[in-house]
Amino acid sequence: MKKNNGLIRRRKVWNVFFLLMSVAAALFGIGWLGFILGELLVKGVAGLSPDVFTKVTMAPNENGGLANAILGSAIMSGLAVAVGTPIGLLAGTYLAEYGRHSRLAGLIRFVNDILLSTPSILTGLFIYVAIVVPMGGFSGWAGAAVLAVIVIPVVVRTTENMLLLVPNGLREAAAALGAPRSSVIRAVTWRAARAGIVTGVLLAVARISGETAPLLFTAFGNWNMSHDLGQPMESLPHIIYSFANSAYDDWHALAWAGALLITAAVLTLSIVARLLQPKRS
């Protein structure tokens, strides 16, 4: 009996120990989030000024800004979403509506999930070989293309997931009214899944707005205010990368300001996306 009590005590001690460890793990995770956001706020706000939005990048100590980078990021991300969303939406529709159980759909689903986690720097190399080399130089087109390639798998995955949540009864009811299948999809299933699909697009925008690696050798950078997609184009992540690698304090401050802008955009997008997301049953 005595021995048994010892065993029970030991089990309880272990229990408390491991539960405390898991609380510590959660605090660790939240602590990092707080630490990163705190550093960003302190250092980023210090670097923010109206110049950041109105002036272009300049040599150190000349009080430059990030206007060209913000413009470039907006153009390339906008183009990438404009191209990537319809393709992703249609492909996701194929997987959920037409292909569902076919072998081809299985293969595409698998490949899409692989692409979703493929290192983005490899997508960058792909566009470098496929677009930058044939075009003879870095360009905004190449930057937009690489971002579109990253957008597509994200939209495909969420679109398919959201369409699968639409109850079949809705499709059947529409079909019973005589609507052709394409009309059923466009007028009924898409509409029912609209919030979820928008979520996917927002998540895709959040994903590409911080992408740096694939832009290094596709869009490269450009210190002039440029909206010419045929020329190299600046982007916020790229300017953060090159300024952080420099030795100048005012460039570092700009890098932090840029980082704050990106993170604020990304977090806002993910929170909005989460609010829109239909609740899992």
């Binding site: 249609l90 492909a91 509506e97 595409i108 490949v111 692409l115 490899l122 190399l125 394409s182």
Partner: peptide, 28 residues
């Protein structure tokens, strides 16, 4: 007819995904 067109359109988009994958591999 519109149905078939739409079906093929979605199929084409799905094949783009496949194309990207093999494009990455081929380019590398």
């Amino acid at each position: 007819a519109r149905d078939t067109r739409f079906h093929l359109l979605t199929l084409a988009a799905a094949l783009v995904v496949l194309g990207i994958f093999f494009g990455v591999l081929a380019a590398l």
